[in-house]
Design a protein around this nucleic acid. Structure first.
Lengths: 233, 233
DNA sequence: CTAGAATTTTATCATATGATAATTATAAGT
DNA sequence: ACTTATAATTATCATATGATAAAATTCTAG
C-alpha cells in the first residue's frame, strides 16, 4: 500500500502562479526576510517561506543582488509620497500645523520594523541608495522647511538655504527619526505617545530657531565632499 | 639548489607571541574587520589580516561569538568616560558651556567609522548591548542634562525627570548623533564644521526649551515596554 | 482531448564557512 | 645544548551558500 486514499483535498504539489504574481511574492517575502536577517538571509529560507524550491528564484531574478535591488525599490521609492511637497508648501496654513501633519504622516509611513531595519542594513552595505535618500530628505523636505520658516518669520528668501540652516533642520529631523530607531531597532522603551514627542520637538525647534536664525546661523563652511571612497565596495 | 642562501634576515615562519599579546591583536583586527564587513566577516580573512592561520583563533576564543563579545567590550565599555558625569554636573559653569564641552568630547570619542558601524551592526543583531547603551545615555547623560537645566532655569528639581522631558533631550542628542551617521555610515556630504553644528543645535535647544519646559511638557504617558520580544534572537 | 509552452522541481556544483584533531616548530628554563 | 611546554600549523569535517542544467508537472489554446 503505497498511498492511503484518504479523502483529502488533493492540493496539487505545485502551485502555479502567473509570473507577475510570483515575482511580487518573492519581493514581498524577501522584504520580510531581509529586514530580519539582513541581506545575508539565505535564498533557501526565502523559498521555504514561499513554499517553493530555491532554484525557482533564479527564474525571476538573475541573481540575489537583483532581488535586493527590487526590495529597495518597493520599500523606499514606492513609499515616498509626492504629496509631501504640497503639504509643506501650503502657505494657507501656519508652518507649525504643516510640520506636525507632515511628521505625523511621515513617521506613520517609515516607523515600521521593516522599513527601519532595511534602511540601516542598506546603509551599512554602502549602497548609493541611502545617499540618494538623504539627498531627497534634504532637498525636498528640509530645504522646504527652512524656506517656509523664513517666509513665515518674515526673513528674506534665500535659495538654496545656507548649509548651516539645513544642518539645523537635520537636527530636528534626526531627532524625530532616531525615536523610531530606538523603538524599532533597539526595541528600547520609549515614551509611547509619538504625537506628543513630535509636538514637543516642533515646539522647541520653532521657538529655538526664532532666536537663532538670521543671526547666529552663519555660513561658516561649505559642504564638504564625501569622507571616503564614496561609492559602494 | 633548493635554497638561495641570500643574506636575508631569516624571519621565522612562525611568529610566536605571548597569549596576551596575540589575544589583543585578534580583538584589534577583528574590530577593524567587523566594522567593515559586519559580524559575518570571515575568520579566515581575520587570520589573514594577522598573518596567522585560521584555526589559531580557536586557541584564544572558544567561538566566534565570544570574539564578538570582546570586540563589543573594547569598543563601547572601554570608550565610555566616567568623567562625563562630573563634567555635566559641574555647577560652577553655565550649562551651555558644559553641554558644548561634553558634546565636543563625546562626538570626538564616538564619531569614527569603527564605532558607528559596529554600533549599528550590533543593534541590528538585536544584542542587549544597544539597549544597555541607550540606558546609559538616558540615565547618565540625558537625565543629568534635564536636571541641570532645571536647576539653572530655577525650576523645581524633579527626580527622575519626566519621560516627556527625557524625550526632548533625546531629540537633541539624536540630532547630534545622526550627524555622525550621515557622515560615517552613509558618507553623505555634511557641513564639515562639527563644532558649529553642535553649537547651533545647543542654541536652538536651550532657547527652545526655555519656552516649553514646565509648561507644555507634561507627562502624558508612561514609558512603555519594549515593543516585541525584547531579548536577542 | 491533446499538444505544447511555461512553471516548478530534482539533482548537483563549486565554493565558503565555523570548528576540531593531530602534528610541528618555537622560545624559555635548566 | 638539550628538554619541555605550548604557540602555531596542517589537514580535515560538516554544513551552508548562490547558482545552473535537466527533468517533471501544470495550465491553456486549438
Amino acid at each position: 500500500m503505497k498511498k492511503m486514499k484518504q479523502a483529502e483535498a488533493v492540493e496539487p504539489k505545485r502551485t502555479r502562479l502567473s509570473p507577475d504574481q510570483r515575482r511580487q511574492d518573492f519581493i514581498r517575502k524577501a522584504t520580510e526576510l531581509f529586514s530580519e536577517e539582513g541581506f545575508d538571509g539565505g535564498t533557501r529560507e526565502l523559498a521555504r517561506k514561499l513554499g517553493v524550491t530555491q532554484p525557482l528564484l533564479y527564474r525571476y531574478f538573475p541573481s540575489k543582488e537583483e532581488l535586493i535591488r527590487e526590495v529597495y525599490r518597493t520599500v523606499y521609492i514606492d513609499r515616498w509620497k509626492d504629496s509631501w511637497d504640497d503639504l509643506l508648501a501650503d502657505r494657507s496654513r501656519p508652518i507649525r500645523v504643516r510640520l506636525e501633519e507632515f511628521y505625523r504622516d511621515y513617521t506613520n509611513t517609515i516607523f515600521t520594523r521593516e522599513w527601519m531595519r532595511i534602511y540601516l542594513f542598506s546603509g551599512l552595505k554602502g549602497f548609493d541608495l541611502n545617499r540618494w535618500y538623504v539627498g531627497m530628505i534634504q532637498d525636498r523636505i528640509l530645504a522646504r522647511i527652512v524656506e517656509e520658516y523664513r517666509h513665515e518669520a518674515g526673513l528674506p528668501a534665500q535659495s538654496p538655504p545656507a548649509p548651516a540652516e539645513l544642518e539645523l533642520a537635520w537636527v530636528l529631523h534626526s531627532g524625530i527619526f532616531y525615536y523610531g530607531i530606538r523603538k524599532y531597532i533597539y526595541e528600547s522603551p520609549v515614551l509611547e505617545d509619538k504625537e506628543r514627542v513630535i509636538a514637543n520637538a516642533l515646539d522647541v525647534f520653532l521657538e529655538g530657531i526664532s532666536r537663532v536664525f538670521g543671526t547666529a546661523v552663519k555660513v561658516r563652511a561649505a559642504y564638504g565632499r564625501p569622507t571616503a571612497g564614496a561609492v559602494s565596495r
